[in-house]
């Protein structure tokens, strides 16, 4: 009885699946899926070879500071960094006084309320403030950017596959390039629309962001490093790796200690196991 019922139920599911398979196969033969330009022309990110990568990765503080300088002078014009506070900069090697100065001199001010009139106003940033958004709200951001919204960068390197390398590749040398002729030839409908920019590292190949880094020496590094295009891209990727995962170093250190501790536990547990079971065949 059980066998009969279960066989019937099983045959119902298998039958419907067979029917679905038949229609899927028929449809695949009759209307083969069109190839997409982003399948063929999308590129995997280049390796930025950051010191934070790998099991024992740590931040290169000078590089992260240079990356912060790139963010400050280039990216911050459009991109917010809302989960990071000025005080956090102490973690990448700035002193208390430097942090206060950076906050105080930050071009975009913090939204505030006039204590006398209650009217909306702005005030200078202090160390405990989070980085202010360059735009008052989403509508203002879109209005200033051809209806595109510059995303917040705090978590960017965790919000994309292979994020640090992605950021490096996306803004690095040669990423922005003319659309390949063979792409337009093969996919006439995939021509980069007016106002967008061709970039093979971007998921759908056409990005709204204009090229942020355009020439060597765009930023003058205070530590004297030659600001080549790729160097700036690499540094900003290092900075955004830190903003997305500020506790990376303590995580790696704690992991190293934990693994050693647990390995010793495993060794002792194995010894105890051998000892307890020594007279019992099993």
């Amino acid at each position: 009885m059980v066998r009969a019922i279960s066989t019937l139920v099983g045959l119902a599911f298998v039958g419907v699946l067979a029917l679905a398979l038949f229609f899927t196969a028929k449809d695949a033969i009759q209307n083969p899926a069109p190839e997409a330009a982003e399948h063929e022309f999308h590129l995997h990110p280049r390796d930025a070879a950051l010191s934070s990568a790998g099991y024992f990765g740590t931040f290169d503080r000078r590089q992260v500071q240079r990356g912060f300088q790139v963010y400050k002078e280039v990216c911050a014009a459009c991109h917010s960094l809302k989960y990071v506070a000025f005080r956090d900069l102490k973690e990448i090697g700035y002193t208390e006084a430097e942090v206060k100065a950076i906050a105080n001199q930050w071009v975009i001010e913090q939204p505030s309320i006039n204590p006398d009139t209650g009217e909306a106003t702005t005030r200078k940033n202090v160390a405990s403030d989070h980085f202010p958004s360059p735009f008052a709200n989403e509508v203002a951001a879109r209005a200033a950017n051809n209806n595109a919204l510059p995303p917040d960068l705090s978590l960017m390197t965790k919000a994309r596959h292979d994020g640090a390398n992605y950021v490096f590749s996306l803004v690095g040398k040669g990423a922005y390039r003319p659309q390949p002729a063979e792409l337009v030839e093969k996919f006439p409908g995939a021509k980069t629309p007016e106002g967008l920019h061709y970039n093979p590292y971007f998921a759908n190949l056409n990005i709204a962001m204009p090229p942020p880094l355009t020439s060597d020496g765009q930023v003058t590094y205070t530590d004297g490093t030659a600001a080549t295009h790729d160097q700036m891209a690499k540094d900003v990727a290092a900075f955004l790796t830190w903003t997305a995962e500020p506790k990376l170093e303590s995580r790696h250190a704690a992991g190293f200690a934990s693994v050693i501790f647990i390995a010793i536990f495993c060794f002792l547990a194995w010894g105890a196991y051998q000892n307890v079971w020594r007279d019992v065949k099993h």
Partner: peptide
């Protein structure tokens, strides 16, 4: 005693995942 051995191996794998690739199984989105 035998479960302690298994627990140790479990914790080891867990620690490797947690401390060294915590976002491996998550989705960037």
């Amino acid at each position: 005693a035998k479960d302690a051995v298994g627990l140790g191996v479990f914790m080891l794998l867990f620690a490797l995942l947690l401390f060294f690739s915590p976002n491996l199984l998550g989705h960037p989105d």
